[in-house]
């Protein structure tokens, strides 16, 4: 893994080791928490998935029913009814309201539809009060059609909130998982690597110290030995000199005098 070769750029000291270790503990805890969050989200996510599939199917049903009821209305009330409807739009009486729901720290938008009484007064066919569209013929089919479509809207609004939740959760799960993975695969190994690195480095320092001590020790011993030998030699020389002094003249000097005196020294008096 790419993370293994990486480590933080730190000075390998004992203090740093403590800091990094603390960070590793933090990362592990964070990882566990995020993992839990991700699990919670996934549970929610799966529930939503199931619901979406179910709602999609019921949407097909509702849409079929509503478009068929429109056909019925058109059959009875004449084709012209749709123009009347199209022309008399003013302001929406059926609106949606959005609010948030909190799932494991992720805010999910939820829609709910409601009938706006202000909009209901205008706009011909409205949900608030049955209008007079198709009074002479097909009024019932028109209102049946309206009810069918309101039902379809109900399903669609539910589906919309599910779908939005789906997208938001998907995004949230991805982010969370990315974080989990980042912690697991990058941050934690890096911290661990740093710890091993620091530990190794500290060990090495220790070994170096030891070796140096050893070396110094050896050097010192050698020096002492050398000094000892020197001292011995000196002592021996001392001894020899002592001996010669004891004989009155040093042997060297004696020979020198003898050799020198015999060759060149002519003003010798005795």
């Amino acid at each position: 893994m790419s993370g293994q070769s990486q480590r933080l750029n730190v000075v390998p000291t004992v203090t740093m080791l403590g800091v990094v270790k603390a960070r590793l503990i933090g990362a592990t805890r964070g990882h566990a928490l995020l993992k839990k969050k991700s699990d919670a989200l996934t549970v929610q996510f799966r529930a939503i998935l199931k619901k979406i599939v179910a709602t999609k199917e019921s949407m097909g049903e509702a849409m079929r029913a509503s478009s068929f009821s429109l056909a019925e209305a058109k059959y009875v009330a004449g084709d012209g009814v749709r123009h009347v409807v199209l022309q008399s739009v003013r302001s929406a009486s059926l609106r949606v309201r959005s609010h948030q729901e909190n799932v494991a720290g992720v805010k999910l938008p939820k829609f709910s539809h409601f009938v706006d009484p202000a909009g209901g007064a205008s706009g011909g066919p409205s949900g608030a009060s049955p209008s007079l569209t198709g009074l002479a013929r097909g009024g019932q089919q028109v209102s049946a059609c309206r009810t069918a479509h309101v039902k379809a809207i109900e399903v669609l609004v539910e589906l919309a909130s599910l779908q939005t939740s789906f997208l938001t959760l998907d995004e949230a799960i991805k982010t969370t998982n990315r974080r989990v993975n980042a912690l697991e695969n990058v941050v934690k190994p890096r911290l661990e690597n740093t710890i091993t690195y620091i530990k190794g480095e500290l060990d090495e320092l220790e070994r170096e110290d030891f070796f140096r001590l050893k070396k110094i020790q050896g050097y010192k011993r050698r020096e002492i030995e050398r000094q000892m030998i020197e001292a011995k030699k000196f002592a021996e020389e001392q001894l020899a000199e002592d001996l010669a002094l004891k004989r009155g003249i040093s042997m060297g000097a004696a020979t020198n005098i003898l050799v020198g005196g015999g060759d060149k020294d002519d003003d010798i008096i005795f």
Binding site: S67, V85, L86, V89, A92, V96, A128, I153
Partner: peptide, 26 residues
């Protein structure tokens, strides 16, 4: 945090008519 929002529709005439009947149009 809008308290009321609209539903927009892009569809064929019949579908639009139906939803407008339901009072969605604005």
């Amino acid at each position: 945090a809008n308290s009321s929002a609209l539903i927009a529709i892009i569809a064929d005439e019949d579908t639009v008519t139906g939803f407008l009947m339901a009072g969605v149009g604005n």
